[in-house]
Each structure stands twice: as C-alpha cells, then as structure tokens.
Nucleic acid binder design. Structure first.
Lengths: 195, 195
DNA sequence: CCCAGCATGTAACGGGTTACATGATTAG
DNA sequence: CTAATCATGTAACCCGTTACATGCTGGG
C-alpha cells in the first residue's frame, strides 16, 4: 500500500488541498497511481492524525475555503523509511489479456473493435505525454540547461530529472502497448479470415 | 472485476480444482492476473451458486479428494457477454515510479540497489517467458505447423495463437521494463555523481 | 520424525469503488 | 435557469491480503 507515500511525494512537490490532490491523481501522478477523492480524503485524515502532514485553513473568495496540506518533518522521514525498504513486484491486472485468451471460446473477430478502442486510447495518451515532455522538458537538450525555476515541475534539478525519467517510462509503456495491440489485431484478423 | 472471467477462461482451457487454479494463477495466468487460493475458493463458490460452473467430486488415492470444476453453458454465455462489453482502461499501480519521484526528497543513490533488484526480477521473468515460448510455440515458425494436439497449451488452434499473442505481450512488457529501468539507473548514477 | 506437497477452507482487516449529499460561485 | 467547477465529506459494499486451521501422504 503506497497511496500514503504517493500523496507525500505529491505534497512535497507542491502543497495543496485534498481536492487539488484528487485532480493531480487524474493527471500526472494518475498515470502510474490512481485514487479517487474519497480515498484521498480518508487517507489524508489518517495522515493528519499520524502527524505526517500539517493542515492550514486557507480562506478564499468566490470559492469555498480549502485546507492546504503540507508534509511535516515526520512525514518526510516516513517517506525516507519507505524508500529504503524493498517493494514487492507489483501485481498486474490486464483485463485485455484475459479477454484475448477468452476470445478463443467466442468469436475472435468480435474483439477487434475493443482492441482498436484500446489502441486509440493508448495513442491519445502517448500524444499527451509527448506534448507534456515537449512543454516541460526541452525539445532536444540532452543534459543541458541547468535552469529550472521557470514554470516546469517541482523544485530541484534532481526532481525535474526524476520526473522526466518517470515520464519516459510512461512513454515507453504506451509505445509498447500500441505495438502489442497492433500485433494482437493482426492475430485476430488472421484468425477471422481463416474460416 | 474480472476474476470470475479469468477463472472461466482458465477452466475452459482445462477443467480443474480450486487448488489447481491457484497454481495456474501463480504461473501462466498469474503473469497478467493474480489471485490467491482464498479468493479463488470464495469466487468459485459464488460461481457455483450462480450456475456458471459444474462441480464433480473426484476421489483420488494417495492424495485428498478434489472437486473438479468445469464451465457450464450459462458460464460460457456469461463469458461471451463480458467479452462483448467494453472494459475500462485498467488502473495502473507502479510503486517504483512513486519511489523514483520520491527519491528527489531523499538520497537518489539509495534507490540504485532497489532498481537493480527490480531489473533482475524482470530479466528473470523475461528469460522464463522466452523459455516457455520456445517450449510451447515452435522455435522459428511464423505461421506453420498446424498440429497442436501434442502437449502445447489448451485446445484449439485459435486458442494456441491467442495464448501466444498474450505471451508476446508479456515479453514486450518485460523488455520495455528492463530498458526503462536501465534508463532510470543511468539517471540515478548521473545525479549521484553530480555533487 | 519432520517437512513438503496436496487440498479445502474460515476470519478479520483494510483498501478501492460507487453512490449519495451539500453548498457556493461563475459561465452560458 | 442550468450546468460546471470548486470543495469536502459519509456510507455501503466488495475485493484483496494475511493469518490461521485441518488433515492426509510420501520422501529424506
């Protein structure tokens, strides 16, 4: 269970409210860790009780007041502790793979639309990642431009580079999936034509 | 939720007991869908109550008796129904990505061992997949050898090809991960040397 | 004798999902 | 007027994980 830790990382990158966290989990962080606002509020409360975060009421005009959370010293050390202990190989859950194997007991051709739909979603996500990469991490610099203060993501230089590394992982994942789904489509078409 | 459907697919490929299913979920199916024996027994009972599977007591000698489950007609149509409805883009959960971003707030070098450990696990799994591919799906034939009865996986020709497609997905995933983890290691080393 | 493997389960806990609830402001 | 956005929550349910429990057989 690492939702707590994902929240810690996000709040370290930038303090914010439960609502703001929920929005981040729909975008950047959400690409490798999902959570709904209900989960977040629940966990945030526990983290507050455990002293991992400090809360500050922020009155706003024209909008409801919010509670801004920030990581405390003990939250930071809890994160450090987690970073030093091994995590087990995350368990996978690929509905599509189950469906592909299941297609052998139904009409394989009937899956084609579904697989194409997934490929479209992965292409969209890849485009979205690549756009974010262009925006936040230069166009073609390899390791130059040690500025960073401008408008890019959180804080330090190391933070930027690590965020970029994670993003490259997302990009590699989407590319792999798009290629594999093409492979699956070829297989399904071959099976459909043969009979 | 698709554990029911994963079980249906597995039982269609070959009927078996809850224990046998649990073992399969540790190997072939477990690579893209995990489940423990407790879950399996619980779901199997519900599936039996719903009439999706039929049970048959199989007395054994030298070993405890077992209940062999097989998919019923209504189970097959439940699977077909699920195959025809869209599944939502499965939610991801990558502890390592959280850790990598978190490393910015701790010592990046401290993560190196953990990332190397993961890369080793992925290399092992890749080797295991490739061995399985060589064993079950010829060495270098592209679409030949329409035999299949021998000792390869489940039933039909289409079933074989679809299982192979899923396996190729696993192989592509492991290769992608190994490459990305190498990328992450480079990044961590660069950050560690720079200071 | 003890351990590993086969085979089936119960119980408890916590996490994740879905639905419901409230209330204010701003844009169309 | 209505819908969307901001903001925070409660409640119920199911799923997944961990721990515990039982009992038999075969091999070292």
């Amino acid at each position: 269970m690492a939702l707590e830790h994902a929240i810690l990382v996000s709040l370290l990158e930038k303090p914010g409210s439960g609502y703001e966290l929920a929005r981040r989990f729909e975008r950047s962080i959400g690409h490798f860790w999902t959570a709904t606002h209900q989960q977040i509020y629940r966990v945030l409360k526990r983290m507050e009780a455990d002293g991992w975060v400090d809360v500050r009421d922020v009155p706003q005009q024209g909008r409801p007041d919010k509670k801004e959370y920030a990581v405390s010293a003990s939250g930071l050390s809890a994160l450090a502790e987690w970073l030093h202990e091994p995590v087990q190989p995350e368990s996978v859950r690929h509905d599509l793979a189950v469906k592909v194997r299941g297609a052998a007991f139904d009409d394989p051709a009937a899956l084609i639309g579904e697989v194409e739909r997934h490929r479209r979603m992965h292409r969209d996500r890849l485009a979205h990642y690549l756009e974010g990469e262009r925006r936040d991490f230069g166009g073609s610099d390899a390791a130059g431009t040690p500025d960073s203060g401008a408008s890019g993501p959180g804080g330090s230089d190391a933070g930027r580079e690590l965020q970029h590394a994670v993003l490259r992982g997302g990009i590699a994942y989407e590319r792999m999936m798009i290629a594999w789904l093409g492979d699956v489509l070829d297989t399904l078409h071959r099976l459909a034509s043969r009979r």
